[in-house]
Design a protein around this nucleic acid. Structure first.
Lengths: 191, 191, 191, 191
DNA sequence: TATGAATGAGTGTTCATTCAT
DNA sequence: TATGAATGAACACTCATTCAT
């Protein structure tokens, strides 16, 4: 069987582009710079992606799906809401630590004008799954019965702002801080 | 008495630039586009600002200072921490509603490489004032004694993510949602 | 009697322009820079001159005429050709020392495309007067009977190249060097 | 074997730039004009040269070195100073006729502020080699013992002014004129 | 398939010129 | 008369994209 892209150039381009898009944004990143970092010719980028916009969309969807996958793949069944939050929280921490750039990338490109319909659908799809999960927990009466968007904004907001600040200021987040933050979030949302 | 810039072109340029930088970022915004939106010639931008970078820095500092001013100007004395949070929260809501673009702008440009020393200093100065305020409340024993950075990330995170989502998805935030969110934040941080 | 330009702004503009055109050429000199050096507003330049091109043409003609005037005004009558050359040579030296910039300016702008018909006519007129003078001396049989253009190129060439080099390299020309050069020129052209 | 720039675009750019810089100077020449004359896209200029300034410097050094090479490469040994001058003179004439623009170019750009250290060094190096040559002849007692800079200014001055005038006035220089001029120069400098 | 030279539209910025004050 | 803020065309230079090799 003939493999597609045996040299992994497509992957190299995606990885290079992720780093650069995250650091300098879409318009601040040039295709030649991506090609140089991926150690391929500029033309090779266009053999793999129709345009710079397609490239950023592919990355966006990949990042969004991978995060959702990472969080929702092995959700434990039959545990308390407290346990569920703790589980999700540390999965997010693990993801943020492994894929720092990917997480920051999705934050930055949220709702940018160069994202296409498909990317917006992926984003909304992931969002919808989290809302559903929250609504199931709300039905158990363990967390507040308010607008689940508010609950989600609480969880995500605390997490993202903390990680963004840690990343942009170059300071580390201790496990103690993360535990404290998780406790805050729980107290914020519990019924 | 001769007025400086009686036609308010400088202000028009700043306003136009704020909108565009917020929508499309620094690199995605062109100076001719700013000039066109401000209804001035391209050269007029350069009569008022040394460069595109200076323009974004002026805007950044202005936005940061105005927000800090708005929040910290009339902090009530001798009230409970609960009252203080409520006060700050609704000041933030008022600001976010009046100056939607300005708030979103500062979020986007946080720690960008085109911000100069002065802008970084302004940003850090504002941050420090909020941390001090939190430490005073922590000393009263009314909020958690954890790392105040975590507390601040909690308050800001919930607020910003909620407003960003409302803005980018074009949905409104009801007063009820905002009250609920504020209650979440309080329960998150109280001792 | 109402004087024109009592404040001498026109003169200030011409002097400022001469310096700048000589240092940086026509295209390398900006009208605002001329105005700033002349301590007038940019609009004042246009009140006195139709355009940057007219300004350079006025300067060119002035410089050309002044030099010719300086050299040909008091030509001694009834002296030997040797005496005449010596006279002219030291008049040129005096002019070059007094009006360094003016001399360099005419050299630089010789036959530039922005010079108008009138300027070219002035240039050619001055040239013709020198050629006539040379032909009169040739008729006396005291200098070579070759193409007078060659004689003129010799006198001017030695002089200009020497002064240009002195000026651009920042070295001074001693009287001894100038005397030696004049002797060279004489020996070059004498019959 | 892969040739570098087989289409000779770099050469085409250099040739086009030489013509334009010679006619209109550095600031009067636009990069789009160079590209158009060289029949390449504007971007191609920047693939071959870092900037307009680098381009003019490359041209300047090339022209300076080629002229020095042309004159000094095959200096006849053991000939009289008279013969040496004649040799150099006609080499200069040959060069001036073959590379009219190149000669005029170096004259114009002498000591301009956009020339870099390397270009100034090349210029001074060439100058030094001519001064040395003159000093060797002075040691033989065949030419005047005056400041060799004056001798050089004499030779160069006569030559350059003659060619510049011929070129700018569009008149030709007859061999007879050139012979006469060479004789003038000899008589100017001989002991 | 992979390349990178080539392109030219588009960028940030300057400046000759105008004109309201 | 004198000013200098305002203009926008034109500049030096960049970069997304193409295509011959």
């Amino acid at each position: 069987m003939r493999e597609i892209d045996p040299a992994g150039k497509r992957r190299a381009i995606l990885d290079a582009a992720l780093e650069l898009f995250e650091q300098r944004g879409f318009y601040g990143t040039t295709v030649p710079a991506i090609a140089a970092r991926a150690k391929v010719g500029a033309g090779t980028v266009y053999r793999n992606f129709e345009s710079k916009a397609e490239l950023v969309n592919v990355l966006y969807r990949e990042a969004k799906l991978r995060l959702a996958q990472h969080l929702l793949a092995e959700v434990p069944k039959g545990v308390s809401t407290r346990e569920l939050l703790r589980h999700l929280w540390w999965r997010m921490v693990a993801y943020a630590r492994e894929e720092e750039a990917s997480l920051a990338f999705t934050e930055i490109h949220h709702h940018a004008e160069y994202l296409d319909e498909q990317s917006r659908a992926v984003s909304q799809g992931a969002h919808a799954r989290f809302i559903e999960l929250l609504e199931r927990e709300q039905a158990r009466g363990t967390i507040k019965g308010i607008n689940p968007e508010v609950i989600l904004a609480t969880v995500e907001g605390v997490f993202f702002v903390m990680f963004r600040r840690a990343r942009s200021c170059g300071i580390g987040l201790s496990d103690e801080d993360l535990r404290a933050a998780e406790q805050c979030v729980w107290e914020a949302i519990r019924a």
